[in-house]
């Protein structure tokens, strides 16, 4: 597969060009969410990403969408993107087959500050598709398990069938000494796990608040309530990190769409320390 790129004047590389990559595998996680595994080909060597970063995924003739990278940062030959089918581009991606070619450019954005968690308890709280940008964190922590004390994953979904990565959630609990608590908003009688909001799970783990670093990702309202709960339990706010979402069109700071008050989510975000964005979260229609 040829990717002919003409030289750009003044030695400035064009940040808007997309690189073709091959779809290796498609897994449907639930009715409207699927994970694409992409073969990076000869781009695998130079491409490096940190947990929390995202790519702009391009569909020829349709457009681009910002999707978090949800695979292991250690393995860049194959990249995972878990995608929620919700608009034109993501619907088009949902129709792709193994062997189809799509485009990527990236990685962009800030990452989860994993160094801050060394020697501490790590609490990873996510809801719905919010687990996708956090999965690379779990892989990274599990790889050097001894560097961290407790690792707790709290995950909430709409119903048992909507949960992402069910097999891996079990694996983390069984093999990596990770406390994994999963809850759903409702279930049927075959579901023996927790039912209720993800913040309710805090009742079942005794957090050592001052020793905890928290990473939070999910619908904004869920993050708001989670942050309140963490505060109530005494986790210092500079130990709490969130991944924010806005309309990401260019990912390189030109188009202005991703602004969240004074910050560009593509530049300073999507991962932010709580103190930086807490005041912004309070403002309606910011």
């Amino acid at each position: 597969m040829n990717n002919v790129v003409a030289p750009v004047p003044h030695g400035v590389t064009d940040p808007m060009l997309s690189h073709p990559v091959l779809i290796r595998r498609i897994i449907w996680e639930n009715d409207d969410t699927f994970t694409l595994t992409l073969d990076m080909g000869d781009w695998a060597g130079p491409f490096k990403f940190l947990p929390g970063q995202f790519n702009m995924v391009y569909v020829f003739g349709v457009g681009e969408a910002a999707i978090s990278i949800s695979s292991d940062p250690h393995k860049t030959g194959l990249l995972d993107h878990t995608i929620h089918r919700v608009g034109t581009v993501t619907t088009s991606l949902a129709q792709k087959k193994r062997g189809d070619v799509i485009g990527l450019r990236g990685p962009y954005g800030s990452s989860w500050p994993i160094d801050a968690a060394k020697g501490k308890d790590v609490c990873i709280i996510s809801g719905g598709i919010g687990l996708a940008p956090l999965r690379p964190v779990v892989y990274t922590l599990a790889r050097q398990r001894d560097l961290y004390k407790r690792i707790i994953v709290l995950y909430g979904g709409r119903s048992p069938l909507d949960l992402l990565y069910r097999v891996e959630l079990e694996k983390w609990a069984n093999e990596n000494n990770i406390e994994t608590l999963v809850t759903v908003d409702r279930g049927d009688t075959s579901w023996k796990g927790h039912i209720g909001v993800v913040t309710g799970l805090f009742n079942y783990i005794k957090l050592d608040a001052r020793e905890t670093v928290a990473y939070v990702c999910g619908p904004e309202i869920m993050m708001k309530y989670t942050v309140d709960e963490l505060e109530r339990r005494g986790v210092p706010s500079d130990h709490v990190f969130l991944s924010m979402e806005r309309n990401l069109k260019c990912a390189v700071g030109f188009c202005g769409h991703c602004q969240f008050g004074p910050t560009f989510i593509c530049k300073e975000g999507p991962v932010y320390p709580l103190p930086k964005i807490r005041p912004l979260m309070e403002r309606k229609e910011l």
Binding site: N3, V5, V8, D14, M16, L17, P20, G99, G103
Partner: peptide
């Protein structure tokens, strides 16, 4: 920004900005 041409499943990208 760029022009892209499809051939089979693959595509090529030609930059156009600049």
């Amino acid at each position: 920004l760029f022009k892209a041409t499809k051939s089979g499943k693959a595509f090529e990208v030609q930059p156009s900005n600049g």
